[in-house]
Design a protein around this nucleic acid. Structure first.
Length: 531
RNA sequence: GGCGCCGUAGCCAAGUGGCUAAGGCAGCGGAUUGCAAAUCCGCCAUCGUGAGUUCGACUCUCACCGGCGCCUCCA
């Protein structure tokens, strides 16, 4: 696309797959140079699990990339803190909805921080927007798009000509549905904008009596309040497309007579790998309607097949997962699959991701021995425009950078981006090998290495990987002691080697390996790492 | 039943109507090493099955088999 109204010549073209149109198209923003993103966040009634982290990590990366590419980005993630499930859970725990929501929101935020998701600009809570929500509902009633019914308010899908456009559904096709409130609705597909409070439930006063907002309306109200009536990108998990996003569109567009969001981006869902570690295998349950067979199916699923994680036994609290796996490895796993694909998640996948990640960390350690500088302290280049550093980094490196950027321009293909980073690691290692940088560094080769590392830092930074030095797992006092001991062991072993006593040297190394410590005899001395 | 998605090497996972089908893990061979480890070099797939469209398909169409999601709450 050549210079459409919403872009400037300086900005690159970024293709985005749009659920609404079912194809990719170049991003054209509502306001030139600015991107507004709304991501549906969690309902805070339980500790968050890995599935809740997918969207935030993806959009954190999207935001990093768009800013790097020159846009100004406003990213909103809402917190649903009023909902039937929160009420039920808080009642069961003997606490209040507000307290439970506060506690679970803190859990969510801590998990996001661990994964390096720190760029959310607004996290509105539904309960802070009751006024605007009521205003939206009044507006819809005034337009005859909604009606009050015995203390509830429903959206009237028959009044919305293009209802169902996101998921290719028609109102007629949905007439079979309903639920407990069916007698209060005009048509079964109508959905609640306002729910009358039952006794003992938390409530807010409204023109229709005491009650609370329905699920979908908060997103319409809060996105309008923060991003405006028409914003650029609305995201969420694939499972939210219907009914949630379909209904958001219905509400917002009936109210505003303009598109709610230009692009609808949906991420694939986490799949829990079965006990065998393999995905797939479960025969479709033929009698899904029956309670008994559903339970059977659930048991089978737990034992052998892949299932959506929120319905599987794999939905353990994310913070438990963090006790077993490093957040960097988790982030890398999430980004090593294209965001629209399902991610097969399990212990095996995580360990593999961790192993792959260590190739980067070994490179960082190796480079630090050469340059004396920690990768984590290198400046983050966050401007896409080429610069002297890129030019100085060599043609091979430049080509990889171009490949990385082209992949990200094409619907944020982080999987290809990560693949190019592995190539990058190889190029840098080869440079160190070939130039003998660990033995006799020449100034020219050293300068080239420095430039390469700055570019690598630039690209990993876009993905939010290796931004900060991993936290030490033990106290610094312990570390100092172990370090001293290892110095001693290595010194003694070096004497054995000098005296050709390889039996002793190998024994030391083998015993250390058993203890989880790896020794490497490198050109510049013996180094050790601990698993 | 309705609306969608997927099926690529031992495992994970990109991608394309015709140039060598990315990358990772595992494996194999070589360089390097006292031996290792690490690193580098090389090897390792014809793309679920069948039919069709096309000069040409893994990439498009149809059927079938298998897997998944949504249609009620779900990131």
């Amino acid at each position: 696309m050549d210079s459409p109204a919403g872009t400037t010549d300086a900005l690159p073209t970024i293709e985005i797959y749009n659920t609404l149109t079912k194809k990719k198209s170049a991003m054209v923003t509502v306001k030139p140079g600015h991107v507004g993103i709304y991501l549906c966040g969690p309902t805070v009634y339980k500790p968050s699990h890995i599935g809740h982290m997918v969207g935030p990590v993806i959009f954190d990366t999207v935001k990093r990339y768009l800013e790097y590419s020159g846009w100004q980005v406003t990213w909103v993630v809402n917190i649903t803190d009023v909902d039937d499930k929160i009420i039920a859970e808080s009642t069961a725990r003997g606490t209040t909805m507000a307290k439970l929501a506060t506690e679970m929101t803190a859990d969510y935020l801590a998990n996001l921080a661990a994964l390096g998701v720190e760029s959310i600009d607004h996290m509105p809570k539904a309960t802070d927007f009751i006024g605007p929500i009521i205003t939206c509902i009044e507006g819809l009633i005034a337009k005859s798009a909604a009606y009050a019914s015995d203390g509830d308010v429903y959206f009237d899908v028959t009044q919305d000509a293009d209802y169902g456009k996101l998921t290719n559904r028609t109102v007629e096709s949905m007439q079979g549905e309903g639920g407990l409130t069916v007698e209060r609705k005009r048509s079964a597909a109508d959905f609640a904008l306002w729910k009358k409070a039952k006794s003992g439930e938390p409530f807010w006063e409204s023109p229709w009596g005491p009650g609370r907002p329905g699920w979908h309306i908060e997103c319409s109200a809060m996105s309008r309040a923060i991003l405006g009536e028409h914003f650029d990108i609305h995201g969420g998990g694939l499972d939210l497309i219907f009914p949630h996003h379909e209904n958001e569109i219905a509400q917002s567009e009936s109210l505003h007579n303009c598109p709610m969001a230009t692009y609808w981006m949906h991420n694939g869902l986490m799949q829990a790998a079965g006990a065998s570690g393999k995905v797939g295998g479960r025969a479709r349950d033929a009698a899904i309607g029956s309670e008994a067979s559903s339970q059977d199916a659930a048991q089978q699923a737990a034992s052998q097949a892949a299932t959506k994680i929120s319905k599987s036994t794999g939905a353990e609290p994310f913070k438990n997962l963090l006790e077993r796996h490093r957040p960097e490895a988790i982030r890398m796993l999430l980004l090593s699959t294209h965001y629209r694909s399902p991610i097969h998640f399990g212990e095996e996948a995580l360990s593999e991701s961790a192993r792959a990640m260590e190739a980067f960390e070994r490179l960082f350690a190796r480079c630090q021995r050469v340059t004396g500088l920690s990768f984590y302290t290198l400046p983050l280049q966050n401007r896409r425009q080429g610069n002297a550093t890129v030019a100085a980094a060599g043609v091979e490196t430049q080509a990889l950078r171009e490949k990385f950027l082209a992949a990200m321009d094409d619907d944020f293909n982080t999987a290809v981006g990560i693949a190019t980073l592995f190539d990058f690691v190889r190029v840098v290692n080869k440079h160190i090998d070939q130039q003998g940088l660990e033995k006799s560094p020449s100034d020219v080769a050293r300068t080239l290495l420095d430039a390469m590392l700055l570019v690598l830092r630039e690209l990993t930074g876009i993905l939010g990987l290796f931004v900060k030095e991993p936290e030490a797992t033990r106290s610094s006092a312990d570390q100092a002691t172990v370090g001293k001991l290892m110095e001693l062991v290595i010194e003694i072993r070096a004497r054995a080697r000098a005296g050709k006593d390889f039996a002793t040297a190998d024994l030391v190394r083998a015993k250390l390996t058993e203890a989880g410590i790896t020794l490497e005899d490198r050109p510049d001395g013996t180094h050790w790492t601990q698993k």
